[in-house]
Design a protein around this nucleic acid. Sequence first.
DNA 1: TAACCGGTTGACAACGTTGTCGGACCCCTC
DNA 2: GAGGGGTCCGACAACGTTGTCAACCGGTTA
Lengths: 326, 326
Amino acid sequence: MKDVASAAGVALKTVSRVVNGEPGVHPATAERVRAAIDRLGYSRNESARVLRRGRTATIGLVIEDVADPFYSGLSRAVEEIVIDHGCLLLSGSSGEQPGRERELVETFCARRVDGLIVVPAGEDHTYLRSELEAGTPVVFADRPPGAGLDVDTVLADNVSGAGQAVRHLLGHGHGRIAFLGDDPAIFTAAQRLQGYRAALGGLYDERLVAMRPPSLEAVRADLAGMLALDDPPTAVFAGNGRYTVTVLRALAGQRLALVGFDDFELADLLQPGVTVVAQDPSWMGRVAAELLFRRLRGDVGPSEHIELPVRLIPRGSGEIPAAPHP
Amino acid sequence: MKDVASAAGVALKTVSRVVNGEPGVHPATAERVRAAIDRLGYSRNESARVLRRGRTATIGLVIEDVADPFYSGLSRAVEEIVIDHGCLLLSGSSGEQPGRERELVETFCARRVDGLIVVPAGEDHTYLRSELEAGTPVVFADRPPGAGLDVDTVLADNVSGAGQAVRHLLGHGHGRIAFLGDDPAIFTAAQRLQGYRAALGGLYDERLVAMRPPSLEAVRADLAGMLALDDPPTAVFAGNGRYTVTVLRALAGQRLALVGFDDFELADLLQPGVTVVAQDPSWMGRVAAELLFRRLRGDVGPSEHIELPVRLIPRGSGEIPAAPHP
DNA sequence: TAACCGGTTGACAACGTTGTCGGACCCCTC
DNA sequence: GAGGGGTCCGACAACGTTGTCAACCGGTTA
C-alpha cells in the first residue's frame, strides 16, 4: 500500500480510502490510485486490516467429517450463507474426537473468528466459556453442548423421528424390531434409541439392540446373533445413514424390513427402495448460520433451541410385511 | 498479552517467549506467566502474529462443490495433511462459476494464504500470475490451468479411463455405445470424450453423444432420442458420478449395459452392481497437498504434471451382453 | 480584507505480535 | 578485583492497515 501511495503520488491514507470506497476522494485522484494498484498488482493485506478493525469476517465451522454426506450438505449450506454475508468459512473435521474438536475450536478462536458453528464430538464444552464471555456467538448444530452451557442449538427431532420409524414398522405387522445404531455416547444415537424404546413400549427387548461404531463385521455379527434368537427380529431400524448402508451390506439380500435414519442418494434406486426418516442437512446448516448472523447483528435474546422436524419417506423396504408367525 | 505481562509482572516479550516456547526463560517465570494466561483466558491473536511474521499457516482450497462426494473426499484428504503440517484450511465452492472461483482465490490471497489448491472452474487464470510471481505456490487438481500458466497439476488419467470403459463394453459385444457426459467445456468431460472416441475408432457415431449439464429431464430426453434410432445403443458410458446416477434414474430399469466414470457408495448394492472406472479422490487430494507442502519447503524444481491411474471395477452393469443383433 | 465553508488530502497513532539488540545479573577464572 | 562467559530479561521498532484530527485550497459571504 505504501508502494501504491508513492507510485500514485498520494498519501497512504488516500489509497486506503480508495481501496475501501470511502467518500471524499477526488475522482481523478481515485483513478490514479486505481491505476497504480493495477500496475503493482496490489491486494490489501487482510491480516493487518483485521488487526486494526477487530473483525475478521470469518466464521468457523467444526463438523464430524466433511466426507460424510450429511455434514458436507450442512457445510455447503453454511458456506453459502457465510459468503452471502461477505465472510469466509474456516472449517475442520473433528473425526468424532473430542480433543480434535477442542483443538479446532481453539485454533479458530486464536484466529479470532467472528462466530462459530459446532457439531460437537465431546461432552465438555466449558473450554468455550471464556470465548462466549468475550462475546463470540456460538451455535451448536446436530448435537447440543455439554451440561452447563446455555447456547443456541439447532437439532433434528430425533426422538419423534425414531418413533415414526418404529410405528411405521409396527403398522406393517412387525413386533420384533432390531435397532442397530452408533455408540449411545453420541447424542443423536441416544435420542434415537430413546424414541425407539418409547414407541415400542412393552415390545422393547434389549437383545435386539446393538450400539457401537459401525463396521461391517460388527454389524454382521450383531445381526447374526439376533437372527439366531428363538424369536428373531423381522425388521431393522438403522440409527443413521452410515448404519443403514452397513446394514444393507450385512443383510446381503435377506429380505428383512428396514427403515433407516437419514436419507441418502440412491435410496430410491435400490431394490427395494429404502424407507428412511429423512433429515435435511442443508436446512439445518441454513438455520444454524442464519441464527449465528442474527447474533452477530446484535440480537441478544435468550438462547434458542430449535428442533427441525424429520419426515418418513416410504420407499419399499419399510413396507415389507412381517412374515406370518411360525 | 499486555495484560498477561503486567499480571505476571514481566515484560511483553517474556510472555511472547513463553507462548512460543522459546528458550531462555526461567522455569519459575514461565510458570508465573502460564498461570496469568490461564487466569485471564488469554489466547494469542493470530492476525497480529501473521502480520508480523508474514506466514499465515493457512492453505486455501477451491473446489467445485463440497456437497459432491468426489470433492468432499478430496477435501477431507487435503484437510488431513494440512492439519498434520500445523496449518488451517480455508475452503470454498465455486459452483462451476469462473467468477466465483476467481473471487474465492482473490479472497484467499488477500488473507495471504501460504499456498493454494485449485480445482478450476474457468479457463483463464492469468489473474493468478501476480500471486505466483509473489511466490505463493499453487497446485491445480482434477483439471489443469488455462493456457499460458505452467504450474503443478494433479489429474486423473481420464483419457485412458474412458478408453478402458469403452473397450470393456466392446469386449462384451457392444458396438453401439452412447456417451452421456457433462458440458465439454469442462476439461474432464472433454478428456473422457476424447478417450471414448479414440477407443471406438470407426464405430464412433456423434448421434450417440450428448453432453450438457446433468438434469434428469435432459438425460431422459437424450436417451429416448438415441433409443429411437434405427440402430440404438445397447450400452451407455456415463461421464461422471453424477451422470451415472442420473442415467440410472433415467433408465428406470431398462437393462442397457452401463459403465460410469467415478465410483460411488452403493454402486455395489444396486441390481445389477454398477461397473465403474474409479478414481480415488482422497489420493488426488493427498498428492496435491503433499506437492504443495514440498513447494512450501522450498522445492523449486520444474512444475510437475501428475496423472493418477484409474481402475475399472466390474460389478455387473458393464457385463450385460449385447442383445443378439436383430 | 477577513472570516467562513465544503471538499480534499495528509500526518500520526494505534491494533497485538515478534525480531533485534543490549543490559543486568550470576558464577567462574585469572 | 577485574575480566569473561552464560543466563535471563526488557526496550524498541516494525509488520500493513485504519480512525482521528488537522491542514490545505478555492470560492463565497460579511
